[in-house]
Design a protein around this nucleic acid. Structure first.
Lengths: 204, 204, 204, 204
DNA sequence: CATGAATGAGTCTTCATTCAT
DNA sequence: CATGAATGAAGACTCATTCAT
């Protein structure tokens, strides 16, 4: 019973110091490639100190994961409240998302990584979060349908999924994997395709 | 002096037997969660025998990875040779891709998900393969432009990337993670959105 | 420079508070299963405070041990001063001893059971104490010989050792391990055997 | 799942080699004072090899314990089958027991140690074994009663317990703790006391 | 060729002890 | 005096790799 220090994570606290070090490490390498010694070293604390704040490596990983994921989810959520221009909102989402990716670069691997995590709980949480995001987008699209900004008859779930993919696969992929410089121009081009399609001729 | 048996992989050979066992294991679990003992057990050979054919776990992983990835790439490539209907070809690509996923379910995770793993070579190879795929799609789209099946003025790279993401969504997202039953109907709906966009009103 | 507070243990003092907590813990669990944190917690003091009064865990254990052992020894010693009925005295010793065990149940294990623990000093002290006890009993028996209450010709050392074992059996064996309810009746039966033997027919 | 080699312990086998090393170590020191590295070193094998044969330190300890205890129990058991002279049998038991102690000296600490073992299963097994021994002795005494070799009216359970104590407390204590040289003479003296008592005058 | 027993480097984790407050 | 956060030495255990058979 290692009497773990269960205080909240406050800015500048030792617990935060360790968590941030862990996040950096876990974003760079696999769970199994990161050692507690690495994290302690990066956080500039003793190995034992890590265990004062996190009862095990697994727990530390989970908290690191949640910490990142929450920021990620937030970048979507904050646009979900009602707005008059759906296309404008989508543009904002992509922009915010892109900024987040650029800031953190490696960070979002965690979320892109669709491989079932070793930790069942986390996996469930990931699926749940994905659902939340999808629902948010679907709601936005349905709002657009009512406002007649979106073409009637489309499969809203598919439209939502494609929008998410646009964000984390296209944008994420370009920045994180292909290391391409992405800017306003690319966002506009991508959204144009998503909005009008690539086909020549009117929608059926 | 452990002279690794470097013969080609032939059907039914002991080397293939081991490789296939490794593939199955690596598709199920993390690199670090799969042990050589596991693989030897599954392949029904001795632990030492694995080392007769693969000089290390890392090498075995890389070969397993390539083995899977090649199948994946092939599912795209075989549609890249000239065709008259671009939309039809895209439909075929998605369909073929979907079938591949359904057959292997977990298998293709490897391609998009495996972390760098410090296997720099592999990472480079992944990037290269992504480029090849993207180029194939871009060529297809440019062919469509010439045939006036595709709307002029679009950013072809973005269009290509979105198409790949579309496939990824169908694959990774729906089938593997959310375990949704995906069929012809969904493919059509998705391609409809990709082709005509979600927006109401004519393209600018 | 951690100057250990070397004052005597006075009733109600913080030092006693810690010692008593340690005794309770050590009687319940192994040396290695008791942590300083446990003891500090039970004593309701900080971990550092333990080190104010005891320079190390080993020292604290030794003092706990001595503390218990002294009580044990006393239960014998107080009967060693001259008495007219040897058998009566022996009965009293067993009775006192039994009461002590019943009060403390686990407590006296320490004396007989604790492994050398590399605490050579303690081991020496145990041997010395055993000698003292044995000598006390032997003296008692020799007194009985003079008073002609005890059969001449017996090996007094063996008789003494058997008497100590008899006590040990009542204590360690029946009460603590087998959890048998031991009362006056059992004491009498046991002493009867010790006094008259189990054999049928007169002593040789 | 460390695929423990579960073969029987055969003389000279590597498993036996490790077990014997473990026994030696555990008889000398506490469970917590013995490290796997110690055992591996003493057995002249690698640390990993220990785990090839015993899945954990706890398991190794339990097997070591049983190994010793069985020999101990056997030294009593082999005298329990019918005999005409009870006193003679008792003499034989003490003699056999003494020889065993002398051979193993430290070994029997394991059994003398009445402190509840950390391992609940083992503790249960110890209690059970004690019962078996006690019953064997009690049966012997009751046989003696029928043969009129033993004084009627004695409490047979107490007589049995005292005989056991005579063996492992008196004999064990002298040899293992006090390091006294014990021989035929002492056995005879002790048994004389147990048989005829120390009291002067006939049994009541 | 095939095997699996043997190995030890490398991990996580615990806990006595220190020391700044 | 009292405290408990910080520390790192030490120990159990895993597993890729070797090598004698």
């Amino acid at each position: 019973m290692p009497e773990v220090n269960d205080q909240k994570i406050t800015a500048g606290s030792k617990k935060e110091q360790i968590l941030l070090a862990a996040v950096e490490m876990f974003l760079d390498r696999d769970y199994y490639q990161v050692t507690i010694t690495d994290i302690a070293g990066r956080a500039e604390v003793g190995k034992g100190t890590v265990y004062e704040y996190f009862s095990s490596k697994e727990v530390l990983f989970k908290e690191s994961f949640s910490y990142c994921a929450e920021a990620y989810l937030q970048s979507f959520r904050k646009h979900f409240s009602g707005s008059s221009s759906i296309r404008g909102t989508m543009h904002d989402i992509i922009k915010t998302h892109l900024d987040l990716i650029k800031d953190n670069r490696k960070r979002l691997h965690l979320l892109f990584n669709e491989r079932p995590l070793s930790f069942q709980e986390l996996q469930a949480w990931v699926i749940e979060s994905r659902q939340e995001l999808l629902q948010g987008i679907v709601d936005l699209i349905e709002e657009g349908l009512e406002l007649e900004q979106i073409r009637p008859g489309i499969n809203v779930e598919m439209a939502g999924r494609l929008f998410l993919a646009l964000n984390y696969v296209v944008m994420g992929g370009m920045v994180v994997i292909d290391n391409v410089d992405v800017g306003e121009e690319q966002i506009t081009a991508l959204l144009d395709i998503y909005w009008h399609g690539i086909g020549n001729g009117p929608a059926s």
